[in-house]
């Protein structure tokens, strides 16, 4: 989540690609940018990984577009009901939707950045109570009894993105620890 050099999550967020438009001629380096031909021209479209994008954009070599996971369509869906959007489908399995979103917000202008951050934050807040609920529920059930949950729940769980998955695990683990403690006994058997 954080921008730390050593953090795996930040590596995962940074490898998401952002669609860009070229502002200069690139001769013979097309394949480095993931294109099929070797020469790229002004106005050509390339997808750049997020870790590379800020430098290129800052130097005015590229223009970027808002990447698909944060487009209006998604925002509208989130507005309608944040809990029914499958974030994992937007960034691929194991992708970091929040982390990626924050990186995109960091290169946007101030007003746009504020708006996107607002979307990220409300989405997180609206989802995390449900997340906690389900995590605790799963942690406090012994073994496989957890399989017979409602459909809405399983849809929600499959739609979790990476940060949320970690949170789910944390909640589940602590609920499990408490359950095991309640079940444990120090009574000596006679």
């Amino acid at each position: 989540m954080d921008n730390d050099y050593w953090s795996f999550e930040s590596c995962l967020s940074e490898q998401q690609k952002i669609p860009c438009t070229l502002k200069l001629e690139v001769g013979n380096h097309g394949n480095l940018l993931g294109a099929s031909e070797s020469d790229l021209h002004v106005g050509g479209k390339v997808s750049i990984p997020m870790w590379l994008a800020p430098t290129l954009i800052l130097n005015d070599w590229l223009d970027f577009n808002i990447p698909p996971p944060f487009m209006q369509r998604v925002k509208r869906a989130l507005n309608a009901d944040a809990r029914s959007v499958r974030l994992s489908a937007l960034v691929g399995n194991g992708g970091e939707w929040y982390g990626f979103g924050k990186l995109v917000a960091d290169i946007l202008e101030e007003s746009q950045a504020k708006e996107l951050q607002g979307v990220l934050l409300t989405t997180f807040k609206e989802r995390f109570v449900d997340l906690m609920d389900q995590a605790q529920h799963f942690g406090s059930l012994p073994g496989s009894a957890a399989d017979n949950m409602g459909d809405r729940g399983s849809d929600f769980r499959e739609g979790l993105e990476m940060t949320e998955r970690e949170l789910f695990l944390l909640g589940q683990e602590s609920a499990k620890a408490v359950r095991l403690w309640y079940e444990s006994t120090d009574r000596k058997e006679h």
Partner: peptide
């Protein structure tokens, strides 16, 4: 963890 995430996002 959750508050940490929110702090970064904000």
């Amino acid at each position: 963890r959750a508050m940490g995430v929110m702090r970064v996002l904000a």
